[in-house]
Design a protein around this nucleic acid. Structure first.
Lengths: 339, 339
DNA sequence: TTGTATGCGTTATCAA
DNA sequence: TTGATAACGCATACAA
């Protein structure tokens, strides 16, 4: 079976073994850091490895060991918005950070409409030991299905609270929005509007609900609600309509910073000042919030930490540890000059 | 060797073969769309595949066929800046778009300082059929080395023009900056400053050079140069220093939009108006450029197209086709209200 | 502590 | 057109 070592292509375990004068098994043990190999043999083998510039073949290793040392990050949303969202960028960063401590590598699956089956096949084809699903919204019950045969951690809760998805990591959206509402109330604002996100996305729903709770507690009306899709342009448009409908608006909570920046445009267009005439509070604390003119008061979302927690949770899941089904990360208000 | 089909875990070729009453070889042919299989056999096999919900194991397939159907995207920069850069986000989008038409999947390697060897091992360990290296700057001669044993396409030229890297796709940075300079000159500006990017990054160098060429051609001084790191904060800081040094500045070219937005802050702080007192031109045409107040005149960089071209180039390279060593993508000026 | 032998799930090379 | 059977490169139970 052994045959002649293939001299042409990439070095194999076999070639290292031949050069070191030991068996393939021993080389394998050294490569995998087995404790039961005598020091001198380890030295000889490592020298051979270095000399040949040997790198283990992952496919072979994965086939034999039944693990891949890779995890997938699935982004089931139409790419454009997702990638232009600083939140997502930071999330990926956190994931990368957490994974840097491990031997896992990240495989990114960009989910376009047509490629759903491609992704599913990839996940089920033994390419990864587990998957991270970011931005979990309406359509993807399909991935809940995948989670039955593969460890999966979802970022964000499922849209339907009744739907028990095994493992999720989420940010406390509702509470953050309440903080925003409370802050505007404390600042003496009375006609407080909201620019909500899509109501088919959990953060869209939760942030609107938090705002409502806060205003109701203060005895204020919750009739001033506009909707956007989390983009700056949609925020501007929603704000324009709100101001037309109710010129006396003196405060507004936008469900994310990008829409808040859009609202800035609409408010300034009408000659109103920020925060003099209208106080603005956003959500996310993305990098543009602090740079806006005036700097935006917003709810800080721990997106970096969320990425880290998601990755660590998945790794523990893969290792067979017991992890909580749901992790909720705290949010906090960052007061700047727009309120 | 055959043994009893493993009923517990994922379905294998073997199990499909048993159910369809054919050999493994035939099932393999059907899965791979071989033309030399009789239609009725194809039908039976496909039914068995569907019934068992069979998905080929990628590791085994890769081991046997010596290809992985995966390509890596290497991001060799400290993650924070890269991920907050809209340019990068769009680049990834373009790559995803181009790959959606193919059977390739994307593996993302986030390069932290310490993990360099991990990345190298991954690339050389037979995990991918080729690699895309984004944001190619100083340190990574290492990847030029990798490109000798694996098809690699670099985004952006190497820092040292003399260093012949096999395949690169780049944007015409110098020409874009010239367009920006020419535009400011045409608008009658005479004291035109530049906020340059890091001079250890090719775009930083090329964009500054383009601005210089334009001003020299117009007979203007090129003494007003500040430097930033492509972040909004650094743009603001550079602008503050420039205005202190030379209060008569009436135009500024920033090497990217984020620094231009930072410059807005610094300019407005001093009570100056845009473009009345100071005209501003950026570079990139990212999504915030159009939303800025006033909307930012900028040089459009085809980042989406760049991603697509990089991906397509790599695929062709993997297929053994002949592709040009360098592809240069055109830039164009987008005039808005800041100039 | 080390080596032998077998299997991981496919593809590919032969024959039939 | 189909079927045996040998790789593919490594891990691991079992023997020594």
């Amino acid at each position: 079976m052994a045959g002649i070592p293939n001299a042409g292509s990439a070095p194999t375990l076999e070639m290292v073994a031949a050069r070191a004068g030991v068996s393939r098994a021993t080389v394998s043990r050294v490569v995998n850091g087995s404790p039961k190999v005598s020091p001198d043999v380890v030295a000889v083998v490592q020298e051979a490895i270095a000399a040949l510039n040997y790198v283990p073949n992952r496919a072979a290793r994965s086939l034999a060991s039944r693990r891949t040392q890779a995890i997938a990050l699935v982004v089931p949303e139409s790419t454009a918005k997702v990638f232009n969202d600083p939140f997502f960028a930071t999330l990926v960063q956190g994931i990368g950070l957490a994974l840097a401590d491990t031997e896992y590598t990240l495989s990114m699956l960009i989910e376009s409409e047509a490629a759903f089956d491609k992704t599913r096949r990839y996940l089920l084809g033994g390419n990864v030991d587990g998957a991270l699903v970011a931005s979990h919204h309406t359509g993807d019950h399909s991935y809940a299905h995948v989670s039955r045969s593969l460890p999966v951690v979802f970022g964000g809760r499922p849209l339907d609270p009744g739907e028990q998805v095994n493992h999720t990591v989420d940010v406390d959206n509702a509470h953050g929005a309440e903080l925003a509402g409370d802050h505007l109330v404390e600042r003496g604002r009375r006609r407080i509007a909201a620019i909500a996100g899509p109501q088919d996305m959990p953060p869209g729903v939760d942030r609107l609900r938090g705002w409502q709770r806060s205003l109701e507690r203060a005895g204020l009306a919750i009739d001033l609600v506009g909707y956007g899709d989390f983009s700056p342009a949609s925020g501007a448009e929603a704000m324009r309509r709100l101001l037309e409908r109710e010129p006396s608006i003196d405060g507004v909570f936008a469900a994310n910073d990008q829409m808040a920046i859009g609202a800035y445009t609409a408010i300034l267009e009408t000659g109103r000042s920020i925060p003099g005439d209208v106080a603005v509070v956003g959500f996310d604390d993305d990098q543009y919030a602090a740079m806006a003119v005036p700097p935006l008061t917003t709810v800080h979302q721990p997106s970096l930490e969320m990425g880290e927690v998601m990755a660590r949770t998945l790794v523990r899941l893969i290792d067979g540890e017991d992890v909580p089904a749901t992790t909720l990360l705290p949010t906090r208000l960052v007061v700047r000059q727009s309120s």
